[in-house]
Design a protein around this nucleic acid. Structure first.
Length: 479
RNA sequence: GGCGGCGUACCCAAGUGGUUAAGGGAGCAGUCUGCAAAACUGCCAUUCAGCGGUUCGAAUCCGCUCGCCGCCUCCA
């Protein structure tokens, strides 16, 4: 069965057929590094992380590039404001972005080009565009001539005449047409600039992605991803540049766009002041819980971030790892059994079907939790029958979890790792908790229920939940 | 105004032509427990915003209406 992908260009789900058999060329727009990255960047990165992992899982040889746009008006402005160079500022935020991605468990794409390292190619593409009459120099700038491309607007569904000279487009008398956009900008004193046939200057927005993509992947690629907001003008312009420069159509076979993250039902924006940075979220939530939250809705749909929704993800993850812990306790060794998905095809099929259908990770998560219930039920039934649970059955559950973890990037740790991280993130004093548990157990031993309950309630108020099990009292952090 | 999308239970959210409409959270009841918690079981949408149409058959396709949202300007 082929993988089906919703293609923004055709606005349809299509069978995925790569340019060359078994290989995938994939480019995703990374951040413009002028500030800390926010939860929206996290969504995009996690979505395409899962997509690239899944394509590999399905046997494709994937070449995945995600760029850093490290020269740009906003970077220059932010650097000026701080009195540092744009290189310094960009480097700082590249490092911060990488740290945030690591915190979210996002695999590092094998190619991570920077705009500033691709200047030669940018100039080459710009020259080619001028040579073909698709662009023109004007002063020290170079502009792309939008009206020269017959199918301009095909991605965003816009018609040039409707975009018209307008109201909301910056007037610039250097442009032949108000809709034309800059490929190259003449350098101003104090700004980063490079030598070019048009004098010193720097690349405009859009051209860097075309150039980086061409340089590292090729003139025609399989998948190009990014946030929905990039459809226009960024990706539209990328198509125009690339196709005009190379004469090859299509530049990209499948355009994928992820939906937005809203904050408490509001759009996240600078003006509302509700930008949620990844590192702020990771201060008191595990990366895995954030990932589960992000993957809980289909990547194209908008999602709403709230304290509640993240707490739900945490509760679910706790349930998952508690079950894994239980399997380890009741069937030691099962976790390490060498398992293969094909031993277990019937059960695993829904997972593959969901992922094949436009990477429906949310559907997969549903299957995982059905399996959690199934495993628990099995163990309950075995226990009440006074039997040992079936190691084969449990290893099938573990197999499903392990396989899923490979591309979802969640459900893959050991319970002790997970719970240790949760405890470390909380402000709970473990030593104190252990002491109180000992005190409570002493009270329980002497049947001093009043004191025992008092301690339990007191701990619960501090966010510590106790469970008395046959093997002793265990505790966990509750949101 | 143009373009695109969405509307599934108390909340979140899969399902996009054909079995009893996944899963999670919350709630209620039960088993278990000193009591809890956890886990499990049962209950919780005869119905998918509304109205028409196509079809043997629709939450799924088409049309209209209502409501919400995004893009058209820097933005993941």
């Amino acid at each position: 069965m082929p993988i089906k992908i919703y293609n923004s260009l055709t606005r349809k789900k299509e069978e995925f057929v790569p340019i060359s058999d078994g290989r995938v060329l994939m480019y995703v727009c990374g951040p413009t590094v002028y500030a800390l990255s926010h939860i929206g960047h996290a969504r995009s990165a996690v979505a395409f992380d899962v997509i690239s992992r899944y394509l590999r899982y399905r046997g494709y040889q994937v070449k995945y590039a995600r760029n850093y746009t490290d020269v740009d008006d906003k970077i220059i402005a932010a650097a000026d404001k701080e009195g540092v160079t744009s290189e310094e500022l960009a480097e700082r935020y590249i490092k911060a972005f990488d740290e945030d991605m690591a915190g979210l468990g996002v695999a590092v794409p094998e190619i991570r080009p920077k705009a500033t390292e691709t200047i030669v190619k940018i100039i080459e593409v710009t020259k080619a565009l001028i040579a073909k009459g698709a662009a023109y120099p004007s002063g020290g700038d170079v502009f792309y001539s939008v009206r020269r491309k017959a199918d301009y607007g095909k991605l965003s569904g816009k018609k040039i005449d409707e975009l018209e000279s307008g109201a909301r487009i910056e007037v610039n008398e250097a442009k032949a047409d108000p809709l034309d956009f800059a490929l190259w900008k003449a350098g101003k004193p104090g700004e980063p600039s490079w030598e070019s046939p048009w004098g010193k200057g720097r690349p405009g927005w859009h051209i860097e992605c075309s150039a980086m993509c061409m340089e590292h992947l090729g003139e025609s690629i399989d998948i190009h991803g990014g946030g929905k907001d990039l459809i226009f003008p960024h990706h539209e312009n990328e198509i125009a540049q690339s196709e005009s420069a190379t004469g090859r159509t299509p530049y990209v076979r499948y355009w994928l766009h992820n939906g937005f993250v809203n904050i408490e039902r509001e759009k996240m924006s600078k003006s509302i002041g509700n930008i949620l940075n990844i590192r702020d979220v990771l201060r008191d939530h595990t990366g895995e819980a954030v990932r589960l939250f992000l993957l809980g809705s289909h990547y194209r749909n908008p999602i709403d971030y709230s304290r509640e929704s993240l707490k739900e993800a945490e509760t679910s993850l706790g349930r998952f790892y508690k079950t894994i812990q239980r399997i380890e306790d009741e069937a030691p060794g099962v976790r390490d059994i060498e398992v293969c998905a094909s031993c277990n095809e019937e059960r695993f099929m829904p997972v593959i079907e969901a992922m094949d259908d436009d990477f429906n990770a949310a559907g997969v998560i549903g299957t995982v939790f059905s399996e959690v219930t199934r495993a628990n039920r099995m163990m309950d039934e075995a226990a009440s029958a006074g039997k040992v649970p079936s190691a084969v059955e449990l290893s099938n559950s573990i197999a499903l979890f392990k396989e899923t973890a490979k591309f979802l990037g969640i459900f893959g740790r050991t319970p002790s790792e997970y719970f240790a991280e949760v405890k470390a993130l909380s402000s709970v004093d473990a030593k104190e908790v252990e002491r109180l548990i000992a005190e409570r157990n002493e009270a329980r031993r002497t049947k001093d229920w009043k004191r025992a309950d008092e301690i339990r309630v007191g701990l619960l108020e501090k966010g510590v939940a106790l469970e008395d099990t046959p093997k002793g009292t265990i505790w966990g952090v509750k949101g």
